[in-house]
Simulated assay, not measured.
Amino acid sequence: MSRDPLDDVLHSWRPEGRLPARFQAEVWERVAGRSREAVPAARLSRGAWVLFVAAVLLAFLLATGQASRWEKKRWSELKAQYFQEIDPQALASAQRRP
């Protein structure tokens, strides 16, 4: 394995001067503080929950209302078809229509 000539220089280098007292502890405190700021809150506020529940309730009511309308329409179609099949005059008039 070839050695880089700078390896010896880098291993022998020692910084001059001293770091301020508690330097490392302060750096880690700043890192911890910033990491807390960067993480978004996992819980929704009460207002957000109220909006969420209201939206779900509205969607549910709209869906059930639409399903009810479809069911009424289908029921009336089935009822008309039934009466048309058991009433010969209604059946004859329906067959005459194009």
Rank of each mutant, 00 (worst) to 15 (best):
Q66I: 12
A92F: 08
A92Q: 08
L57V: 15
S76R: 09
L58E: 12
A80S: 05
L58H: 05
Q89G: 13
W75Q: 10
L10N: 13
A59P: 06
E16G: 00
W13S: 04
A48C: 14
V27M: 01
A54F: 01
H11P: 05
R74P: 01
A63T: 06
A42T: 07
H11M: 15
E16V: 10
E16P: 02
W49R: 09
S45A: 02
W13Y: 15
K73W: 10
R18W: 11
E29H: 04
S2F: 15
R96M: 10
L78G: 07
E77T: 04
L19P: 02
R43Q: 13
S93P: 00
V39T: 10
R34C: 11
S76H: 04
E26C: 01
M1H: 05
R14D: 11
G33I: 03
A41N: 04
Q66H: 05
W75A: 10
S93F: 05
E16C: 00
V39A: 07
A21Q: 06
A63W: 04
Q24L: 13
Q95P: 13
F52S: 13
R34T: 01
F83H: 10
V56M: 03
Q24F: 10
L78Q: 06
D87R: 11
Q89V: 15
E71G: 00
E71Y: 07
G17C: 01
E29D: 13
Q66K: 06
R22P: 03
I86R: 09
A80C: 08
R18L: 11
L51C: 01
G65V: 03
L91K: 15
E37T: 04
W49V: 15
V56S: 04
A80N: 06
A67W: 05
A21F: 05
L51E: 07
E26Y: 01
F23V: 06
L62Q: 02
G17P: 05
G47E: 10
A42K: 09
S45N: 03
R96L: 13
V53Q: 04
W70M: 13
W49T: 09
A59G: 10
P5C: 14
E85I: 10
A92N: 04
P15C: 04
K79L: 11
R36H: 02
L57T: 09
E77R: 02
P20H: 00
K79D: 14
R18F: 12
A54W: 03
E71W: 14
P15K: 05
D7N: 06
T64C: 09
T64H: 07
L10Y: 02
W28Y: 14
R36G: 08
P20I: 10
A54K: 06
A59W: 08
V50G: 08
I86K: 11
S93D: 14
P40C: 00
P5L: 13
